[in-house]
Amino acid sequence: MALRGAIVVDTEKCKGCSVCVVNCPTNTIALAKEVNSKGYNYAYMANPESCTGCTNCATVCPDTCITVYRVKV
């Protein structure tokens, strides 16, 4: 049994600090090339298939802009 996860980033709240990126154990997250209305490169799932829904990113996110989902497959 494996875990599959996904994150939803509130891209307007995200300030692109990258703290989630370095704390992601599966290299799922990266900063987008696009920017939000404040000009920040927001976080997104660059490798969605590798997400396990571990919640590490959300735990360290200073702006609490990540929601995490997880299923057992």
Binding site: G5, K15, Y40, G53, T55, T59, D63, T64, T67, Y69
Partner: peptide
């Protein structure tokens, strides 16, 4: 399937702190 979301005790305001600030 939701396993982590913002606590309802946190308000929706965008924090004024700099990106990556520990305060948040």
């Amino acid at each position: 399937n939701k396993v982590y979301s913002k606590s309802p005790v946190l308000l929706d305001n965008v924090m004024h702190y700099c990106p990556g600030c520990s305060h948040g």
